[in-house]
C-alpha cells in the first residue's frame, strides 16, 4: 500500500493540474490574470525537503518528462527544471532547518523561480512576448498566491505522507 502512495499522489496531482487549468481558467478569476497551478512543483519540493534528494530528483525527472510530452509538447524545459530545482531545494535545506513554516516558504519561493525561468525560456524561443513588469503582474503574482493557498492546504498531509514513506522504507 505505502509503496504506491507516492506514484498515485503524483498521478493525481499531474492530472489535476490540467483539469484545474481547463475548468477554472477564466470563470472564477477574470480572464486577464493567469493562475498556473504548480502542484507537481509543490510535490517535488516536499519530496526534496522531507524525503531525500534522490527521491526528489527522480520524481522531478519523470514528472517533468511527462509534463513536457503531455502538456507543453516542447520537450526539455520541465524535464530539465524539475530535477535541477529539486537538487537546489535539498541543497538549501541543508542550510535551513526543516520546520513546516520554512518548508512552505521554500516551496513558494521555488515555485516563483520555476515561473520566472519558464518565462525566460519561453521568451527565448519566441512563445512569449510580454515584458517583465507585465509578466510579474498578470502571471507571477497570481500564480504565487494560488500556489501559496495550495501549499498551505496541502503542506501538512504532504509532509506526513512523505515522512511516513521514508520511515517505512528505512525500516524495511
Amino acid at each position: 500500500m505505502s509503496r504506491f502512495i507516492l506514484p498515485v499522489t503524483a498521478l493525481l496531482f499531474f492530472i489535476f493540474e490540467s483539469i484545474f487549468a481547463n475548468l477554472f481558467s477564466g470563470v472564477m478569476f477574470g480572464s486577464d490574470r493567469v493562475y498556473v497551478p504548480r502542484l507537481i512543483m509543490i510535490f517535488i519540493a516536499f519530496l526534496a525537503i522531507y524525503g531525500s534528494k534522490r527521491l526528489g530528483i527522480l520524481y522531478g525527472f519523470i514528472l517533468g518528462l511527462c509534463y513536457d510530452v503531455v502538456y507543453t509538447e516542447i520537450l526539455g524545459i520541465y524535464t530539465f527544471l524539475f530535477p535541477v530545482l529539486a537538487y537546489l531545494i535539498s541543497k538549501s535545506m541543508k542550510v535551513l532547518q526543516a520546520n513546516l513554516l520554512i518548508a512552505i516558504f521554500v516551496s513558494v519561493f521555488f515555485v516563483g523561480i520555476l515561473e520566472v525561468v519558464v518565462y525566460q525560456l519561453n521568451v527565448l524561443i519566441n512563445f512569449a512576448k510580454i515584458g517583465y513588469p507585465e509578466f510579474a503582474n498578470t502571471r507571477l503574482l497570481p500564480t504565487l498566491l494560488l500556489n501559496l493557498a495550495f501549499i498551505v492546504i496541502l503542506s501538512f498531509p504532504l509532509r506526513r505522507m512523505v515522512e511516513k514513506y521514508e520511515t517505512e522504507r528505512d525500516s524495511a
Partner: peptide
C-alpha cells in the same frame, strides 16, 4: 478533457 497548465503555449486536449 484537459489544458496545458502553464498556459504559455496555449493548448487543449
Amino acid at each position: 478533457i484537459g489544458r496545458n497548465p502553464d498556459r504559455w503555449n496555449e493548448m487543449i486536449t
